[in-house]
């Protein structure tokens, strides 16, 4: 009993095609992107001194009640400089409120950055030791979290924001959130 020709030649070919497809689709992925287990969960609470006014405590409580972005940034981070003009534009257009988490940065460096390049943030919290960063699963600055009105993390983007990322990733999430809000109001 011998295997028929279709099976003899077809089977290896099929296995090859399957493997090729599997490997091909994985080739386009960025191994640096680690999916966050925090998406869909309440944002880890924090209360930190504000960057501009160390006596003032800012934190997750202030972000409740409306959709917000939390942008993790640092003056030592080159990609943050790259994304900064885009954040300035977002802030100018008032599309969404942007909060900052200044990560492992010296206060004077961070303030010099904001004064020199502009400050797109409602406030920036000063996470000098990076403890809050660990709670938020931060591993590569810049990172941006989308929070809904109830303070739940709905999306996380690792890497600089730009027009393309905004259009393809963030804007759809915001649209979904505003649709949800309308549905709830009705």
């Amino acid at each position: 009993m011998r295997l028929g020709a279709p099976l003899r030649y077809g089977l290896p070919l099929l296995i090859f095609a399957g493997l090729a497809a599997l490997l091909w689709q994985a080739l386009g992925r960025d191994p640096k992107l680690v999916p966050s287990p925090l998406v869909g969960k309440p944002a880890p609470a924090f209360a930190l001194p504000s960057l501009r006014d160390p006596a003032r405590v800012v934190g997750t409580e202030d972000m409740r009640g409306r959709v917000a972005l939390l942008n993790v940034w640092a003056s030592w981070c080159a990609a943050c400089r790259q994304e900064h003009p885009f954040l300035m534009r977002l802030a100018r257009e008032g599309r969404v409120s942007i909060y900052g988490l200044n990560y492992k940065d010296r206060r004077e460096d961070a303030l010099r950055w904001l004064d020199g390049l502009g400050d797109p943030y409602v406030w920036s919290a000063h996470d000098l030791e990076g403890r809050v960063g660990i709670d938020w699963g931060v591993y590569g600055v810049p990172e941006t979290f989308v929070l809904d009105a109830r303070g739940i993390i709905r999306y996380k983007h690792v890497g600089p924001l730009d027009e393309k990322v905004w259009r393809e990733r963030i804007a759809p999430v915001l649209a979904e959130l505003s649709a949800e809000a309308k549905g709830a109001a009705r």
Binding site: V34, P35, S36, P37, L38, I134, D135, W136, G137, Y139
Partner: peptide
């Protein structure tokens, strides 16, 4: 660690 960074 898993709660913050995932199974990764």
């Amino acid at each position: 660690l898993v709660a913050r960074y995932g199974d990764f």
